[in-house]
Design a binder for these strands. Structure first.
Length: 585
RNA sequence: GGGUUCGUAGCUCAGCGGAUAGAGCGUCUGUCUCCGGAACAGAAGGUCGAGGGUUCGAAUCCCUUCGAGCCCA
């Protein structure tokens, strides 16, 4: 019996007793709904397989003491099928122990549903747009963006498993000042001049500059001789040459970023270009729409969005006095696009931003509200804390412009995609993380991903041995999964659907990772204590070996099914993290 | 100065209203006649930053305070 089924049983039993007036003055309608009934797995197995705190919650309303109320519930629950024993303990916990067959039924459920086990439909009918990474195409993806790649993609998989329609989206800021700076830096580098003070540095700038020169030469163009403007103060001005660099270099960065994401096994459904919002007139139309609502005003030669009307701490310039659009202008049009586009318009636009952008929340939510949507619902902003890179135990400040970044490709090269994705996704993104470069390079086996993957590989090996020994799953009697170790594994398997749901509701992929470590742990322990393939298959007992080491055919088959169920759940969970499940390691 | 996120084992991090606060790494001691030792069993290591409050019950919720990161002035 699953914890979900148990919750329903407790709910209906409690209502019946209350209606019969056997729970003091408790009104049946005061019983909390099933989804709010916590059925917990106690840490101490002496407290049963599952426990409920319902008696303590209801005691006051019932005018009974919690233990007394608990006992009434316990007596009724004990009558139900599949329940072995029910005790009341401590301040009023109801501790339930299942029959081994009932507990182990989850094994068949897992094997029947296969890759689908753990999925549910509770987000059915909702389209979620997940925008993450969205780094400017002015350089490679650094470690912070890499964290979002791992977390965002995993979150997308988890939300899909909860029944939502998910669109993974990457927003390229290919319009505006950053790109100009990037182009200026390239021109300077191409001429062997020092990059501008506010420009981008780093070896990749030289590489791209050279690649652009080569590409232009292939087109029969000597790009370095194109007209160029240098202002009196030495700054690279607006020129044909700069534009020629920009036009070639930006697509190169796109391609590089797309390749990095693909190599990291993140597949975006939409690569969105900020520029397209301007070229298609969507920015102008969005501003007009706000103007019609009376949220736009002119001041000091600039055009403003009156975002304070919707809770922002100050109004925002949308069009600067020099006629250029400000960054928010794109954000306004982009939000509308996400909500109203022809293909997969979203119900919820979810933005994943770094902590250095948390100051944007106010204006973003104002945009959402201005269009009559609900901030926090139609628009959700998740803020990820910083990833600190440590070297010799000290924090190293990274800056793309200074050119000392740890890139996604560096990380993958050092520890591989699986370890990188896993270690970045297993931490709550709302928590800052320290990554020690030396540790990364020297102790790669310390990553818990190997613990989980090894459990999977081990279970595959058990399959191979069992096949050779001719163990027949049809002979399995799940009631024979009755040892302490069996019980731990079975109970942990039953937790998985709840983990998927919680991870989805809280948008917390790291919960899946921690669950997998827990499951791998109980599996390794189980493997060490019991055998699937009998030690002495010729019959007769190996010296000192009971059924733990020398199971009969029904027990061996039951254990094999348990092994396979664990394997299935490990595979399902690893898939939610985008990490591979290896047959051998 | 304002906003925001966060202080849990030596280190990196879980737990976010339940029973004796957990894991990995590190340290120490053990376990192969046995499905793969990338494993298992055990030991040491904590006033959950501090102080109040809420309640049957607080690392978890609220207030105050100290410290840190980030953003804005």
């Amino acid at each position: 019996m699953s914890p979900q089924a148990l919750a329903e049983l407790i709910y209906s039993t409690t209502r019946e007793l209350a209606e019969a007036g056997r729970l003091g003055s408790l009104d049946a309608d005061a019983v909390p709904p099933v989804e709010n009934l916590a059925v917990m797995r106690p840490k101490d197995r002496a407290h049963g397989d599952w426990s409920s705190n319902l008696a303590m919650q209801l005691a006051k309303k019932a005018g009974m003491n919690p233990r007394q109320l608990g006992q009434s519930l316990a007596d009724a629950l004990a009558q139900a099928d599949g329940i072995g024993r029910v005790d009341v303990a401590g301040p009023g916990f109801i501790n339930i122990t299942l029959d081994s067959a009932s507990a182990a039924a989850v094994v068949d459920t897992v094997l029947d549903r296969g890759g689908d086990f753990g999925s549910n439909g509770h987000l059915e009918g909702r389209t979620l747009n997940l925008e993450f990474v969205s780094a400017n195409p002015t350089g490679p993806i650094h470690i912070g963006g890499t964290r979002w790649a791992a977390v965002g993609d995993s979150m997308a998989r988890i939300l899909t498993a909860n029944g939502a329609k998910v669109v993974r989206e990457y927003y390229f800021n290919d319009h505006g000042a950053q790109i100009d700076r990037f182009a200026r830096s390239l021109v300077a580098a191409a001429h062997g001049e020092p990059v501008p003070a506010d420009g981008y540095k780093g070896a990749y700038i030289d590489e791209i500059a050279q690649a652009v020169i080569a590409q232009a030469r292939g087109e029969g163009i000597d790009i370095l001789s194109l007209p160029r403007v240098v202002d009196e103060d030495g700054a690279e001005g607006d020129s044909e040459q700069r534009e020629a660099f920009r036009r070639r270099a930006v697509p190169m960065m796109f391609a590089e970023i797309q390749k990095s994401m693909k190599d990291f096994r993140v597949d975006f459904d939409v690569w969105f270009h900020e520029n397209s919002l301007y070229e298609s007139g969507q920015v102008a139309r969005a501003i007009d729409e706000l103007r019609a609502k009376g949220d736009i005003f002119e001041k000091d030669g600039a055009t403003w969005f009156q975002s304070t009307k919707y809770g922002d701490d100050k109004d925002r310039v949308v069009i600067k006095s020099n006629g250029e659009a400000a960054y928010v202008a794109g954000d306004i049009a982009y939000y509308l696009n996400k909500r109203r586009r022809a293909k997969d318009p979203c119900d919820e636009a979810i933005y994943m931003l770094g902590a250095d952008h948390h100051g944007y929340i106010g204006r973003m939510m104002a945009i959402c509200a201005a269009f009559g949507d609900k901030p926090g619902v139609n628009m959700q902003i998740l803020i990820g804390q910083m990833v600190n890179v440590l070297k010799d135990g000290k924090a190293v400040r990274m800056s793309k412009r200074a050119g000392n970044v740890v890139t996604i490709d560096d990380l993958v090269e050092a520890i591989g995609v699986d370890a990188a994705r896993y270690s970045l996704a297993r931490t709550d993104y709302n928590q800052s993380v320290d990554i020690d470069l030396d540790l990364l390079a020297s102790h790669t086996n310390e990553n818990p991903v190997y613990y989980v993957q090894y459990a999977y590989a081990r279970s595959r090996n058990v399959d191979r041995n069992a096949a050779e020994a001719g163990i027949d799953k049809a002979l399995a009697d799940l009631a024979l999964l009755d040892t302490q170790a069996d019980n731990e594994v079975v109970g942990t398997l039953a937790l998985y659907p709840g983990v998927v749901e919680t991870a989805g509701d809280q948008k917390a992929p790291h919960r899946v990772a921690h669950y997998l470590e827990q499951l791998a742990g109980v599996y390794h322990r189980w493997y060490n204590q019991e055998r699937v393939v009998p030690l002495n298959p010729e019959g007769g007992q190996a010296p000192g070996a009971g059924e733990d080491k020398n199971p009969g055919p029904s027990r061996a088959a039951a254990r094999l099914k348990l092994n396979d169920a664990v394997q299935q759940v490990l595979a399902n969970g690893l898939d939610l993290l985008g990490v591979q499940a290896p047959d051998r390691m």
